[in-house]
Computed example of a mutant assay.
Amino acid sequence: MTVGAIDMVPSLHSGLLVGGQKSVAGSAIGGLPETQELLNFCAAKTILPETETIAIQDINHAFERMEKADVKYRFVIDMASLGRGS
């Protein structure tokens, strides 16, 4: 299985796929089993995401930063900020 975008896929002789009823598949993100396997691996190795938490009121500023490529981590919106006024 190929996950993610790659520039060039090496040539493949279809005869290699016929024996044993093999197939080639691709996915931009992988399926549920692959995602669960990745999450289990990260939990076992204590691998945590690197994020920057923002209030919903700061979403426009966050978007401007994203457009300027001034973002080091993924933005995560603090859902508790939804109930707060501006």
Rank of each mutant, 00 (worst) to 15 (best):
R74V: 14
G19S: 13
T35R: 10
I54L: 03
A69G: 04
V24R: 08
I56K: 01
Y73Q: 06
E67W: 00
G20L: 02
S27A: 08
F75H: 05
A62Q: 02
D58N: 09
M8K: 15
S27Y: 12
L82N: 00
A5E: 09
V24D: 01
H61Y: 05
I29W: 04
E52T: 15
I6G: 09
T53K: 06
L39H: 02
I77F: 01
K22S: 00
E67C: 08
V71H: 05
Y73T: 08
R74G: 12
S23Q: 13
P33L: 05
T46V: 07
F63W: 09
G83E: 04
E67F: 00
G83R: 05
I77D: 00
L17Y: 07
I29A: 05
L17H: 05
A69N: 14
G20V: 07
M66T: 14
T46G: 04
D7P: 06
G30H: 02
P49T: 10
E50V: 11
L39A: 15
V76P: 04
G4D: 11
E52Q: 14
I47V: 12
E37Y: 09
D78W: 03
L38M: 12
Y73W: 12
A62G: 06
K45N: 10
L16M: 12
T2L: 15
P33Q: 02
T35K: 09
I59R: 02
G31R: 07
R84E: 13
E50H: 08
E37H: 06
G30W: 03
T53Q: 08
G19P: 02
M8N: 15
G19L: 12
L32V: 15
A28S: 11
V3H: 06
S27I: 11
A69F: 11
A44E: 15
D78Y: 08
E37A: 12
V71M: 12
I6C: 06
S11A: 14
P49V: 04
I59L: 15
A55M: 06
G30K: 02
G30P: 01
L82C: 02
Q57K: 03
T46F: 03
K22D: 03
A28F: 04
A80F: 05
K22P: 00
N60F: 10
I54Y: 01
Q21E: 15
R74Y: 10
M79L: 15
G4E: 12
A69D: 10
L48Y: 08
M79G: 02
G30S: 06
V18G: 01
G31I: 13
L38S: 12
I77P: 00
T53M: 04
G30Y: 05
L16C: 02
G83P: 01
N40G: 01
A69C: 03
T46A: 11
N60K: 13
K22T: 04
D58V: 01
F63V: 09
S86H: 08
K72E: 15
S81I: 00
I6H: 07
G15Y: 10
T51H: 06
A80H: 12
R65Q: 13
T35A: 15
A55E: 04
S23N: 10
F63Y: 13
L82F: 04
E67D: 10
E52P: 03
K72V: 13
I6L: 10
R65E: 11
I6R: 07
G19T: 13
V24P: 02
D70F: 02
I59V: 13
Q21F: 09
D70T: 09
I59Y: 06
